[in-house]
Design a binder for these strands. Structure first.
Lengths: 227, 227
DNA sequence: GTCTATACCTCGATAGAC
DNA sequence: GTCTATCGAGGTATAGAC
């Protein structure tokens, strides 16, 4: 079932073979098809994350992928199909840090490590962060009900783990769902609002906000969870 | 100078008379002009915040304002002019909660009150939050250098206040800029990613996430700042 | 599989009557 | 100030040759 695909570990970006609903053709087969499809999705990530879904043009994506517009549309039936495929493929990888939160680990360490992994994703994959931010900001019109349910199932599961730690007195009392939102919000902020962060920070830090951000968030969640 | 207009208290949304660069006409004069201009900006806020700048159409804004497209374009020279005017006007009010942070108040109370005011803005003015989120996400192409400098000046000033409190031992050591980012990120999250928050939360809380969010953030920043 | 050419549409903005 | 009509640019997607 769909939920299992998000609660179980998968290979993320390379696991692109599960046929998305909106694609014309069946799963890609030949080497050149795989290569072109991957090129298109990489180009689409670049363009969508920079100017949003509505700001992007098929021609712009085609140019970024170094192919003609009709050729691109030979691989994907529409602009929407590219976007949907991209979202579904990347979401899996995007949730890896949360999926790795281990119920059997040391509670405080597990959560702090999650925060740092998530911050690293904002640093190393800001395009993915902005892609999702843009989608959710507009009301998530291209995320299927299945996908939303799978996301909820994963968060429910991890929230239960955190609640267990609270009940066992291993971390200070917290609202597990809002704690997760706090982690998402603060880490993704450094990708999604990057220009604002850099515009506001003193010049020395603006060049690379992430080292001080990492220390700040470490401090923040350490104090939040200390018993 | 421009910076003063943001660091000093102004009357926010009603202070729309300072002529924005991109408007055709001078400041509105007749009663009907004021009324139509206000209608257009209200409609534009509704549309831009729902579908973003690129997703919005002049016709859509005109319909929301219950006028014809050419009539709307009689008041604003272009779609971009509407957007720029809207951003400049609302930013002032948007920064009121930060501006109200009082250097002479009780440090912890001042910061906690700021958090709550900001969360209330996310609850009561989600459209404004999404408007800015969309603009910053795309790299803030419609915010002038003056506006960015004014924002930085305000944050610099308040960061210095917070640093003063830290130096005086009145709150726990924190990075003032990142503390402000933490407040922005976590409070705006409930407006910008509203659909995700509601999709993930258990049903009872999803109906209104704000009461538990308020308690969670109170807890979070109390523990962060406790000496 | 990839191209040129193009059909078809929507959008931003303007012309010009009233 | 407000309208109908329309222009021209730029967008998605397809036709059809190679």
């Amino acid at each position: 079932m769909a939920i299992a695909s998000l609660t179980e570990k998968t290979d993320g970006i390379t696991g692109k073979l599960k046929a998305p609903a909106l694609m014309i053709s069946a799963a890609p087969k030949t080497r050149i098809q795989k290569r072109n499809t991957a090129n298109i999705l990489e180009a689409a990530l670049e363009v969508f994350s920079a100017v949003g879904y509505n700001g992007a043009t098929v021609d712009g994506i085609a140019q970024a992928a170094k192919m003609s517009k009709p050729n691109l549309l030979y691989y994907f039936s529409s602009k929407e199909a590219i976007h949907v495929t991209l979202l579904e493929q990347l979401l899996d990888m995007w949730l890896d840090p949360l999926r790795a939160l281990d119920a059997d680990g040391v509670p405080k360490d597990e959560i702090l490590a999650y925060v740092q992994r998530k911050l690293e994703m904002s640093r190393d994959m800001p395009r993915e962060s902005r892609l999702f931010a843009n989608e959710v900001l507009r009301g998530a019109p291209h995320l299927s009900a299945d996908t939303k349910n799978a996301l909820k199932a994963l968060v429910d599961q991890k929230a239960a783990v955190i609640q267990g730690w609270v009940d066992a007195g291993q971390i200070a009392p917290v609202h597990p769902y809002h704690l997760i939102f706090s982690i998402w919000a603060q880490t993704q902020h450094y990708a999604d609002f990057d220009v604002q962060v850099r515009a506001v920070l003193p010049e020395a830090e603006a060049r690379d906000p992430f080292p001080t951000a990492a220390r700040h968030l470490q401090q923040m969640f350490e104090r939040m969870l200390a018993i």
